[in-house]
Design a protein around this nucleic acid. Structure first.
Lengths: 252, 252
DNA sequence: CCACTATTCGGTATGGTGTACGGAGTTGTC
DNA sequence: GACAACTCCGTACACCATACCGAATAGTGG
């Protein structure tokens, strides 16, 4: 990585929102499209993780020279933004007649699915409005649409939406749950290698995390509760958060 | 980055938990200590972000050759683990006589402070037990100690602790709040540059995010609610989550 | 049809990265 | 004094993003 190049807000927004097919220009026929580049990037990141996603790799996969990509995309950082918005994709509506709470739960699950299917989104997401592409924006609008019947002050709506988003991101990132991802992030190519590493680590850890030194943690650890993180754990926290929000709204 | 080296669980755990001063061995006097290396890494990451933290930079700052670092640390990834546990540091206890809820809130704020003071911890944190150093473990034990009087099943305790941790991480990561960090992540060195970029971006965004296309998002956006993320927003979600947990516990 | 011009393609070069390897030098021990 | 263990670190390699620029291409105005 020899980055450090200042991004161009206008350019990346134009790419995110821009018309899909500019009229065929003057030079040689383009060998690839922006669409293909973004898709190739997503494929690589899905399969092998963000840190092997290099411009060379993308170009290779498309059968073009590395530098040709720069005709379509200002650089790697901007490509990541485009990938993110495309990975978000369209936002299916909540079931007909859903309450605000069911709708928020629905959108939270969409977020979880996104991070599950494309784990690299967790590393790209530097929130703020930096990367508000059309799909991301549409999804945000849907969330506020679900909240709007409640007639809450804007600041409260934002706080609610932010809280849920924070929980979803954090929960997906955390939890040694997805062993494949954890292994990949740790530098393993082969999941079996990771399995081995994990066993070795826990072996050493059992020598260190003893009942004497860490009694309370140990009590939970020895039940194996940490190895059972799954959808139900995700939903537990989400439902508590929604409970709390519902209670706040009812009071307020 | 030409990483892809499989980490060594035993080695990194030994470094994390190891005796601070091994007896002076046989060769030349060491010019640096592990302690100094870790501290230098933290200083650089705090000041300039994770992606300018290179082995060369660390060595430079300490006045040693780059490769000398590898005498003390197996590689960059392991250094990050060491930095993380040291950044966590000791865990001050909650106020005397605190309820479980006050204690959890206390620890959540400690987490927020960590991520605030050392934003790079958010990028390092690949949870799971990969990097359970002594400080991290101590903090986890403290959290379970706060929960233990409630006599909840282990799985429930884990779900509660995970939820709060998820929220804290997600909330710190999210929220365009910390402009300094956001700017640095975006590739800016000078905060003024970032300010300028931000203004340009919002100018363009106002053309795209219109009342017609995104009415609900627009309604919140136009109040300026998104620019006011701060401690109170963090606490809003945290308190909702704690409310929900309290309600769940009371129900049995 | 020709010249021009806008545009794409991509080779080369620069300055960065992590780290494998191995030699040089230093120190405690026998 | 010899040896062994240890630290330091120069060199080398593979990889990265990307600046720069020339070559090739195709539509357009004359």
């Amino acid at each position: 990585m020899a980055e450090r190049k200042r991004p161009d807000a206008g350019r990346v927004l134009a790419l995110l929102w821009g018309t899909p097919a500019p009229p065929p220009g003057r030079g040689p026929r383009p060998k690839v499209t922006l669409e293909q580049i973004v898709r190739a990037g997503i494929d690589i990141a899905d399969a092998e993780g963000l840190d092997v996603l290099s411009m060379r790799r993308v170009a290779e996969r498309l059968g073009v020279g590395t530098m040709s990509l720069y005709t379509y995309v200002p650089g790697r950082a901007e490509l990541l933004h485009l990938m993110y918005d495309r990975a978000v994709g369209p936002t299916p509506p909540p079931p007909e007649g859903a309450t605000w709470r069911q709708a928020l739960r629905h959108y939270a699950h969409l977020g979880r699915d996104l991070h599950h299917d494309h784990p690299w989104t967790l590393s790209v997401a530097t929130p703020g409005l930096m990367m508000m592409g059309p799909n991301t924006t549409t999804r945000a609008d849907a969330v506020y649409a679900a909240l709007s019947p409640l007639n809450l002050p804007a600041a409260r709506q934002a706080a609610i939406a932010d809280s849920i988003d924070a929980y979803v991101r954090g929960a997906c990132q955390g939890s040694g749950a997805d062993l494949t991802r954890a292994g990949r992030d740790g530098g393993f190519t082969d999941p079996d290698d990771y399995e081995h590493w994990w066993n070795e680590a826990t072996t050493h850890l059992t020598d260190l995390i003893t009942r004497q030194r860490f009694p309370h943690l140990y009590a939970v650890w020895e039940t194996g509760a940490f190895e059972e993180y799954g959808d139900s754990t995700f939903d537990y926290g989400l439902d508590r958060l929604l409970d709390g929000i519902a209670h706040d709204i009812a009071d307020g």
